[in-house]
Structure formats: C-alpha cells, structure tokens
Design a protein around this nucleic acid. Sequence first.
DNA 1: TTTAGCACTCCGGGAGGAAGAGTGCCAGCC
DNA 2: GGCTGGCACTCTTCCTCCCGGAGTGCTAAA
Lengths: 347, 347
Amino acid sequence: MSDSQPELPDRAQLMLRSLIDRYVRDGQPVGSRTLARDLGLDLSPATIRNVMSDLEELGFISSPHTSAGRVPTVQGYRFFVDTLLKVQPLDSRSIEQIRLELSLDQSPKDLVESASGLLSGITQMTGVVTLPSHEHALFKRVEFLPLSENRVLAILVTGEDEVQNRMLRTEKLHSPAELQQASNYLNAMFAGKDLAEVRATLLHEMQETRSSMNSMMMTAMQMADQVLELNKDEDFVMAGQTNLMEFQELCDFDKLRKLFDAFNQKRDILHLLDQCVHSDGIQIFIGEESGYKMLDECSMVTAPYSVNGEVMGVLGVIGPTRMAYERVIPIVDATARLLGAALNHKE
Amino acid sequence: MSDSQPELPDRAQLMLRSLIDRYVRDGQPVGSRTLARDLGLDLSPATIRNVMSDLEELGFISSPHTSAGRVPTVQGYRFFVDTLLKVQPLDSRSIEQIRLELSLDQSPKDLVESASGLLSGITQMTGVVTLPSHEHALFKRVEFLPLSENRVLAILVTGEDEVQNRMLRTEKLHSPAELQQASNYLNAMFAGKDLAEVRATLLHEMQETRSSMNSMMMTAMQMADQVLELNKDEDFVMAGQTNLMEFQELCDFDKLRKLFDAFNQKRDILHLLDQCVHSDGIQIFIGEESGYKMLDECSMVTAPYSVNGEVMGVLGVIGPTRMAYERVIPIVDATARLLGAALNHKE
DNA sequence: TTTAGCACTCCGGGAGGAAGAGTGCCAGCC
DNA sequence: GGCTGGCACTCTTCCTCCCGGAGTGCTAAA
C-alpha cells in the first residue's frame, strides 16, 4: 500500500490539493467544472473528470451520490497532510498575540487555560491542553502537618515552588516532632532529585533495606510513597467546545451529544492525548483514525509541549475533518512552543 | 393583578393543572378532547373549550396557532407552581440512593460533584451545585513555609481539616523562625474562630493598634490578611449539560449554543445562583423570569444547602420550562438536605 | 490525450392536495 | 344559566408529483 502509488502524477496531486482547498472552504462537494476553474490550468471539465475518476479509484476522494461532485476521504486528507502540505510558519502578528497572552504573569494552571483559550479563539474550533506533568519535576521539599486523629497533611514542593498537598492516613498517631524528623530526613535525602527517580529509589530502598531501617525512617518512607503515589493523575483543559456547533457536518444532535459527552467524560480524550505525548512533533488524527466513534467526523491536531527538552504535556485542536490543516498546524505548533517557553520562565 | 383573580374557579384550576400535567408529559399542545378525557369529569370537549378560552384570557395558557390546542404560559406555570402544586415528599428509595451516594467518604469537592451528578442523573436534566462557601468556616491553624526568594506558602487549615494554600509575596525575606513565630501567634489568637470574624478582627487590629505592634505581629497580620483576602471566589460544578439536547424545545443550535456558552462562562449562572442563596427554601425561575435571554426556554429550581444552620451554597436543576416541577422540587429539596448532612459529617 | 456532446442520475425545492386536529360559535336542551 | 352536539373554518403536516440544476460517465471525434 505504502509504495504502490509512489508516483501519483503531479497533475493529480495538484487536483487533490485544489479540491481539498475548495472543499475546506465551502463544505460542498466539488464538481469538475468548479475544479477546472480553480485549477487555472487550461483543462476542460471532462479532462478533470477523468483524473477525478482515478483519484476516486485510489480512494482519495468519493462522491456522496451519483451527481454530487467529490469530497475528500480520510485517506485523501491523510495523503494531503503527509505529502502535499507545505506548512508555512505562522505570521509574526499571530505569534506575537500568543506570546503576549502567555507572557502575562500566570500560574501554570492559568497558562494552560490561556493556551486552550487561544487555540480555540484563533482556530474557531475546540482547544485542548493537558496540565503539565509533574512526573519529572524536581523534588524540593516535603512537609508534614499533623491534623486531627491519624491524618497528616503532606505538602510537596517541587521545581520552582509548585505546591501540591495530599491528605494521608497513617496507621498510628505521629507527634509533630516525629513528623518533623521524617520530613527532615526525606528532604536531606531527596532534595533536587527528579520525582520519578525519587519514587524509584523509594521503592527500592523499602524492599532492600527494610530490616535495617529504624521506625522513623520507615514511617518517612511510607509517607513519601503515599505522597508520590497519586502523582500521576492527568487532566486537561478545554475551551470553545461550542464552536463545533457552527459546522454543519456536525449538526446532528446525536453525534454532537456523543462528542460533548466524551469531552466531559475526559477518559477517552485523555487516552488519545496520551498517545501524542511521545510522538515528538505534530500528530494528526483524521476522522476514524482516532479509533473513537464519536470522533469519526472530527480531526485532532496535537503537539507536545516541553520545558528544557522534557515533554510536559500535549495541546491541540479538535475540529471537523474538513479543517484548514495548513492553517491549524502552525497554530498548534507555535502555541506548543510558546507555552513551553512561558512555563520555562516560571520554572 | 395579584388579587384580581383570587377566585379562579376550582374547575378551571383543575383544568390548568391537568393541562400542564399533560403538556409536561407529551410536549404537545393539548386540545379540548384530550383534556376532557384526562380530566375524568363528565364534560364534553365543548365545555372544556369554554373554560380554556377563559384561561387563555387570563394569560395562563395560549395556543401556538389557531388549530393547535393550548400550551401553558410562564404565568400559567407560575400559578401552577405557587398555588396548585402540592409537593409530595420524595419516595424513600430515591432518598436512600442519594444518601448512599453522598455517604461515601469524600472530600467536600467530591461531594459537590456527586450531588450535581445525582441531580442530573435522577432528573435527566442539568445539575448544578455551588462549592461550599468558606466564609464561615472555622479557622483552625495556619502555617507558613518559606519558598525561594521572597515567596511564602501559606497553608490555611479550616473546619475539619479542609486545606487551602496561597502563595504570598512578602516585601522582605523572612527566616523560618520568624515565620514560625508568626504562625504561632496567629494560631494562638484565632484558633476556633469564624473566618469572617477573623478577617474583621484582623482589619480592626491593623488599624487600631498599628503603632503598638512589634514588627513580627505586623508581619503576621499582613500575611494573614493576604491569606484571607482571596477567600471569596465562588464557583460551581455542573453535570449533565448534554441532557438538555434531548428536549425538542431546546433543539435549536443557536439557542443551545448560547446556553452552553453561558454554562461555560459561569458568570451569569453564578449570578443567578447567588440570588438564591438567601431565599431560604426552594426558589424557582420559570422561563424569562431569570432575566437572561439564554434561559428563556428554561427553568431553574434551586435550594440552598446548609451545615449547622449556616447556608453554605446553592444547588439546583436547569431544564426546559416544560419540566415536571412536582417531581423536580422534592429531588432538589432532598438533595440539598442530604448534601448539607453529608458535609456536616465531614465538619 | 484532450475535448465536446449527450444521456442519465440524483437531490432539492415548490405546488398541490388530502387528512387530521382543534377551534369558535350557534342553537337547542336540561 | 350552564352544558352539549353540530358545523364551518383554520392551520399544520405529510405525501406526492414534478421540474430544474448540478454533476457524472461514456463515446466519438479532434
């Protein structure tokens, strides 16, 4: 499949390109006459029809019914995106707009909100941004505060003063002094280390040196383990869901409902975004490619964003399959870079 | 107006009631024949028509067009809700379901999520619950953690171990010992007091005794003030927005979009909910009564929920004007009580 | 290889008509 | 005076039919 059409004639490529352009703009099936005009070459509709027929044979376009022009198929979009598309960099004005918006003094959480707002605002589709992962943040310190009964509040400070708290339930009551000792011990041991590494060390230590640990160390270890355990919960932020209601191809209450439900559920979307974390660079799911029915008529363009070379999360845009990929891709790309940069200034 | 029809004949009331019942069930304009059958009395459609004509005159019902039966107006619903409705308590099975769901060990935030989920699940409409106000929580203790530069992390523990943190920026660097001193001072001074009261005392002290304070006290006061300052942000949680897509009367993309946008915006909804905080008991906005265009075809049934007699927030249901008020009201009512109770167990 | 011509197909919209639902009003009945 | 049957009228909804437009595929010729 991958190399059975390495030599799709230039003219056919040009036509596919032109057809997609046109279809993206109008949302109407494109006929041979229209295409002939758009193309600018001096070809008659009849000629165009022949080539279109070839393109249909190859599965790049299809017609909704006998007399209705052609529409790109998923494979058509795929070919277009993979080999026809030349992504031009985003114009500097838009870049400045994004940079400006993200340069305001904001917490990481707010930055992420801004980014998704920007994505949806600029593209008029739905923006989505995962919260930055803490997995590889640096352990700075941990403090334990005794609460009532056998509950302890753990405060974990990471990286450049990101704070998380966890409520722990301990088996026995600990005095403030004990807790202080435990945190001192942990802080001395782990300060400046990568959280994932801390966790690994922790597990290892608890297995290997269990017998030789005194009870304070043991307590400290167990509590630290509890603190880090919950550290993997992922989440994302969305904006502009309702923008999707403006696209006729999605104007079906049933489909739309399934889509919105999936947005609220978060699970499936999260799973999809997860798949994009490790594809360094732009990742695109077109229509059914995502594997989720509710996204059958949608595409998703994503890019990971990173700080200091470490991937922190993913952001992207969800819209109808018929979207202006060459416009969306640079937007997503730029936003990812600029969000990374903005987060870096924080850290 | 209010007493020009104190004496709407019983039969007319019965008919209005019956008509609304029917309309709520079917969503179709109700004709005289149908109503005659529903009513059970031995009256001919012609008689019914006469009374309907009166009800129309009074503004309680109206007909979409000449030959289409009648539909309740907002005033019709209002009259129904205010004087015709007898709210029967919720059946014990549903109550148990709610109680059970809310009795799981959850944080207040999770409880609120559960409550809105329950509201939307049971009613098949949209559930909304404000987060419990912290304004009158009890001050338990505060801790300050020095971070880098001149930033300090303040941890405020209230009530029964609710934790909030705030990042403070202080003018000068404080040593850990100073911070410890400050928190000791504040904890000794305010433990067990109401947050609002703490705030008031704080402001008062800072004005009155400024000159006689030593710098440590001053610092402590200022930081405490900063901590409490941000304590008023309100927010709510929604569930089941998409349920509204199942109602034909809302199946207009434009209206639906405006509605969903308002849900995401939060501002207007929050404002509406705010109005319901102090109406002790069920509050109902029918159609345009809310004053917001996007809710013109919707109604909202709310009830405040409280802990120990102190109102903590509001919850409610948003659905089409044509909703089964006598079913929804007890659900909202019961959920409010049970949420209050569940939060009380926490506190 | 390209093109003009032609027959064919299918969608969309408008016209027309029939059926159904409901109304208002009137005249008669209890 | 209230209730009822009857009747004419209105308005929506749905179906069908039909036509025009758009676009196709095929063929034959340049």
